[in-house]
Write a protein that binds this DNA or RNA. Sequence first.
DNA 1: CAATAAGCGAGACGGTACGTCGAGTCTTGAA
DNA 2: TTCAAGACTCGACGTACCGTCTCGCTTATTG
Lengths: 213, 213, 213, 213
Amino acid sequence: MKETESEVSLAHSRARHEGPARGRPRSEAVERAIIEGVMKLLEDGVPLGELSIERIARTAGVGKATIYRRWSGKEELFVDVLRAAEPPDPELPGVSMRGDLIVLLESLRQRGLLSRSSAILHNVHAQMKSSPKLWAAYDATVIAPRRLQGYEVLRRGQQNGELRDDIDIELLNDMFVGPMLVRAVLRPETELPEDLAERIVDILLEGLRPAGR
Amino acid sequence: MKETESEVSLAHSRARHEGPARGRPRSEAVERAIIEGVMKLLEDGVPLGELSIERIARTAGVGKATIYRRWSGKEELFVDVLRAAEPPDPELPGVSMRGDLIVLLESLRQRGLLSRSSAILHNVHAQMKSSPKLWAAYDATVIAPRRLQGYEVLRRGQQNGELRDDIDIELLNDMFVGPMLVRAVLRPETELPEDLAERIVDILLEGLRPAGR
Amino acid sequence: MKETESEVSLAHSRARHEGPARGRPRSEAVERAIIEGVMKLLEDGVPLGELSIERIARTAGVGKATIYRRWSGKEELFVDVLRAAEPPDPELPGVSMRGDLIVLLESLRQRGLLSRSSAILHNVHAQMKSSPKLWAAYDATVIAPRRLQGYEVLRRGQQNGELRDDIDIELLNDMFVGPMLVRAVLRPETELPEDLAERIVDILLEGLRPAGR
Amino acid sequence: MKETESEVSLAHSRARHEGPARGRPRSEAVERAIIEGVMKLLEDGVPLGELSIERIARTAGVGKATIYRRWSGKEELFVDVLRAAEPPDPELPGVSMRGDLIVLLESLRQRGLLSRSSAILHNVHAQMKSSPKLWAAYDATVIAPRRLQGYEVLRRGQQNGELRDDIDIELLNDMFVGPMLVRAVLRPETELPEDLAERIVDILLEGLRPAGR
DNA sequence: CAATAAGCGAGACGGTACGTCGAGTCTTGAA
DNA sequence: TTCAAGACTCGACGTACCGTCTCGCTTATTG
């Protein structure tokens, strides 16, 4: 996992040869200013299509070359913007599988709510899907860890008898996160009621056959 | 439904005033040439970002103004391209709710497979999500009818006792299509095995509690 | 001569294929606006080094591409600017060779004075010398005709006995124009007294031996 | 003369305050490397316009700041390059004015021939004319001494009766060097035949009236 | 001999201009 | 009125240099 992490990392201070650090080192402050500049613009409601490198540079008070020195284009920069905007991983209570799943789904719901208000996630997200390479980078650094977290919870659930063990974990995970993601990501106009995480988990656990079956 | 249709309809032959049609009429052949030109380019593997109006016009042997006369921009044109590429609605056997659901999900799976091979759907899809207005248009003409089809199937299931009736239909629908869409749209690198539709439906119906309760 | 003329001509309206003139024709007004914009800037004392294409375009209220459509770069544009700034050919009285030579040299002197006050000629002139190709174009359209005029005057002088006929005309011409050009072009800080043309001509005719032989 | 010399001198080792010389002294080797680097590039046929400070620094294996420490810009550096490329002053036999003038003009002819083959002088020369300040510096250190040499020869000619004394020396000088410079500098495409210096001098001495008066 | 101070190669920095490309509009002549 | 063609203004693209500014290091002189 560590290698993957470092492979998809996009902006580095002098990442290339990593010699004995000749010349003036890259300024981390500048790096932050750029990323925060993009966020500010997005939060101010600037449409994604109007986010030119030129404008980003102007906003951050930075030369264009300084941006290109770190990222090869708008899209790669956006990956780092998303990364910076990412909320921290949720803490799992670990008492029961059901409880942990609800926490995980609730965190997805929160992210959905967030991405609508701030407008950062949703558009950049959509934009990024156009490039398989960038999507892979984003997936590896941001999404995959959450997915693995889910796998772990489900595995424990199978081990302690809370969950059927005749279904592969990947599919199980998609059964849980799918309904939430459909609403949060693919259909951003739908509501995300407070008890949605709990209802999804319980429906899946109990099944859909009529009660008196 | 009809009104919605006409509201989101994007390309018209002389839609505005609809006077007694003076001057040279618009050529339908030109319209087809443009849409097919876009498809050809996408199928030839041209990245979506390189699809400029200028290039589309060149490919179709058409003046730029002729495109702008019909669509207000690239994105609106894409909606019509997607519409033209859409496979026909699936025929539902109507015997059992379970059977109909499997047919619906299988049709989603097929679309997922298709969008990977042709590369049309996936990218244009992603691109379009950046514009809420266009997404709404696409949703209304292409997605919504399918969704309503699903609602109908589920409603019948509740009525004839195949399905619990204490859960609202929208959520039920998302429970079924969510897992499939996650794989087909959000994670295009995953496999879509042949029995996926059937497994998803059965897991949902039976629930995830271990067999022996 | 005609061929040379047309070969070095640099800006044309749709010069390439010269088909039956399809599409919107190039605007002559725009062409004039550009050239006059450059002149205005130079007359306002803008140093030649600060004359970027970008600034020229801004001044003329014109897109950069419109400039590049006509000239391949700054230098080629300058040739046409010089051409436009060129005073008309002097009228030769034709009475005597001596008189005609004085008129020709006087016209060179006037040009020298002009190029200092307006600052157009001198700098652009110098700039252009860096490119043999452009210099050739300028020479062919602007300088050469004057030179030929001089040759003609000298030839007539030899024929009617005003001038030795044992020296080739090219050298004779350089003997007359050389002293004037040295002062006007190569040493712009020197004065150009009013009677300079006459003095140069007479010195050359009479020779430099002391009067009493 | 001395003051003029030192005023236009452009590159100094720690020229400004000339304190008690603290810190590491500037390397003369570096200075030579830079000037020779420029010459090498010019001799390799690199167009003058592509001679950026950045490229010069790269070629000489030197930091940009090291160049700016010595010269305030490209043009000032070029003055020193020209100075370094300058051939030595001609030795005058001093027997007759006519002989000395021929030697002086012949040296101009040689320089013309040289500047065409090496391509250094011609272009840098032209370039420099754009900047009055630099031209003045070049004129003072390189050209003016030659001019004074010429004045001296002419003055001696007037004193010993070889030359009319009713014409001011500056004009006389321009009469002699003008024809040669026109060919060597302003019209580099013309030939410079071997006996050109002698012919110019003799034509001027004898005048252009037909032999039999 | 250590301290001090400037020189040095390298390269980041905020800028400006380059020459190209596409956006959307306008203007031709022909259909 | 539409059509293909192509000129028009505008503005972003990604690159190259500008002249300045750190970096870590080297090289003299001075206390």
